[in-house]
Design a protein around this nucleic acid. Structure first.
Lengths: 218, 218
DNA sequence: AAAAATAAATCGTTGAACAATCTTGACAGA
DNA sequence: TCTGTCAAGATTGTTCAACGATTTATTTTT
């Protein structure tokens, strides 16, 4: 347990807890979150919960309808397309302009190895997490705290979408080797090739996700 | 007056009001915002004010130190560099992959014309606003709501930095013609050239801002 | 003058309250 | 049966008052 419960103030801790519940699928898209019941469930006051709601709303995980309450965001085709558009723009460019000695490269390598391990153990959720970490590391190549924070948000949104989809093996496993290949190209200094590979990687991933998404009758 | 005061809920309206005060320079960087006094000044409750603080904190305009209060963010060299890094990555790519018939192009043109008018009238604040609108329109070329929202945030942060700097003429006037040139290139379909021009534009602007910034101490 | 102890101010969080708004369901009329 | 009205109930929006915890300022002690 890496607990520092008292380090942060309550609202961000609450937000994190709710975020976890969202990604774990314990709160389902479209579901309304009642201030009264959730605040008593989490054992906090309504005011504190509302502060947390504000945070999650700006992150796009919750949707606020005045006088009606907050709802878990429902991923849509539109949001998936939007997110992949952002990913292609940011990740590919970050990769293209990267230099192979960047510290984030170590994190990329660690993520690839983690993903390989998890695949070996058929731990598909672990593969998924490792993949996400790989891409976050790519964004870190751009050396911008703001960009990395922004990417963290849309990654969380994407995980919300993934929560709807079944068969995480089909969803994540194929990309482990591609990640390894991209990493290898980067380490050789072939950043343009790496970026191109990532571009087609992301397009393929987008198609897969959209197809799986449409398959469940939006 | 384009007032719809009752449309939104209180916290976002408060946030907007405070944002305006920040950009107008009525609240100075580093200044501490007391919950008690500000809430009575704005005639709202402490709780509502705290919700607004959360919003502005995630936007980077305010900084929250637990048990000490919230402070107006102090722009630093580091933050300016970070922001320009993001701008180069996002704006240049958005421009490069744009197609000249995109609706946002009309907004770009309107901004250029507005800037020309304001320059004629020596309204340098107006020139600055028009410039900002021009660049926001560039980002809109990428057709991503999330990307545009993110850009809006860092633009607000940048305006906070500009507030520190004097001589808005020096800061904004030189770029009006460059914007016009970039727009012309885009309309001719020369997106790569336009992107290259924007890249050097942004680098020059960054240098200017950094220089002006270092000139006023720390 | 430095350190320790004390007091004052401010934030963090809670619970209760009430107005405004939305939802529900009964009911009357066509 | 369908439709529109209207009151009752539930939920959010916002405020207020309170109190423990932490920080800041002040005073006392060494």
């Amino acid at each position: 347990m890496t607990k520092q419960d008292t380090a942060l103030t309550l609202a961000p801790r609450l937000a994190e807890k709710i975020r976890d519940m969202l990604i774990a699928g314990r709160l389902k898209p479209g579901q309304r979150l009642s201030e009264a019941s959730l605040s008593s469930d989490l054992d906090v006051s309504r005011n504190s919960l509302r502060e947390a709601f504000r945070l999650l709303t700006t992150e796009g995980l919750l949707r606020h309808e005045p006088n009606r309450g907050v709802f878990v965001s429902t991923p849509s085709m539109a949001s998936i397309i939007d997110i992949y558009r952002v990913r292609r723009l940011i990740e590919c460019r970050a990769l293209e302009q990267a230099y192979p000695q960047h510290p984030a490269v170590a994190r990329m390598r660690a993520s690839v190895e983690k993903a390989l391990e998890c695949r070996e153990a058929s731990d598909w959720v672990g593969v998924g997490s490792a993949n996400m970490a790989f891409h976050a590391a790519i964004v870190d190549l751009a050396d911008s705290a703001r960009l990395s924070a922004f990417y963290g948000q849309i990654a969380a949104e994407l995980r919300l979408s993934f929560g709807l989809l079944e068969d995480p093996e089909f969803l994540h496993a194929p990309y482990v080797d591609m990640n390894a290949a991209i990493l290898a190209q980067l380490e050789e200094g072939k950043t343009s090739e790496a970026a191109a590979a990532l571009e087609s990687y992301l397009s393929r991933s987008e198609r897969t996700v959209l197809a799986a998404f449409s398959r469940l009758g939006h």
